[in-house]
Amino acid sequence: MLIYILRRVGFIILTMFLASIIIFSVTQLLPGDVAQVVLGQFATETAINNLREELGLNLPLHTQYLNWVTDFVRGDWGNSLTSRMPIRPMIMARLYNSAMLAGVALLIYVPIGIILGVIAALKRDKFLDRTISGISMAFVGLPEFVTGLLLITFLAIGMKWLPANSSINPDSTFSEAFKYLILPAITVSLTNIGYIARMTRSGTIDVLRTDYVRAAYLKGLSRWEVLVRHVLRNALLPTVTVVAMGIGWLLGGLIVTEQVFGYPGMGRLLVYAIERRDLPLIQASSMIIVAIFSLSNLGADILYSYLNPRIRFRK
């Protein structure tokens, strides 16, 4: 098992290396000169040249790349071009915010999705199943800006229960931020409940059909015991993987939701960086998002093999 994890970590390093090449090349291909963008249209030739020198833009490409990678690995992610602030604390604050939102969203959508999925599987093809499957799938299809705006209209503007805008101070603590987290978390959850419910439903239906579940019923175990001990343990395996993989997306990919609510997470930081053509910021946050996705995939695989004895005890 340890060997397996080490091997996977090795693969992540390889992934990061490949990603760094891609990110670096893509940022080189972006139209426009960085120094020009930073200094504005009316900057003088010398000012631009000075900045290019300062940023190392006049060096050969491979040297630029090597410098950037070694600095990144050492933890020196450079300064933002627009705000002139160090990038690392900036990303860390945003990551913390994203983690808060992710945590609240997971707490909402995972249990609800699983419960709905199990109910749908138990009542397969009956009215309740069709209702659950139908409604949850409808929300999967709705884009976040639609569900988000609907929620804002009803819960924030209509009922005035919750703030419509979640643009909190990036340094807020969890308790300060909590009430601003609810609406975006619900928005994210609505898209995900259907997905989780669907995975759980099909997993549970497959397991309910197995001989060992029939054997468990015919041992005289109660329905509840059969469900918890024999069915869910196996049926939730694929769901667990999907949830764990979803963490990467929650931390780094909630661009639309964060935008709708003005929430200062990783997604918005990336959008901001791209809008301003803030090259070091784009590069650093992209690398971090790649790392998050790789790690959450690894987490999903480790969790899966831990829960599945067929993999855990492989010779």
Binding site: T210, G220, N234
Partner: peptide, 24 residues
């Protein structure tokens, strides 16, 4: 019936590989 199953009438199933829960 649940008190009969597993107590007074028990079953041994066909495919032992499938009738044993793989994760318990």
């Amino acid at each position: 019936m649940r008190r009969i199953w597993g107590a007074k009438i028990t079953m041994v199933h066909q495919d032992p590989g499938a009738a044993v829960n793989p994760s318990l």
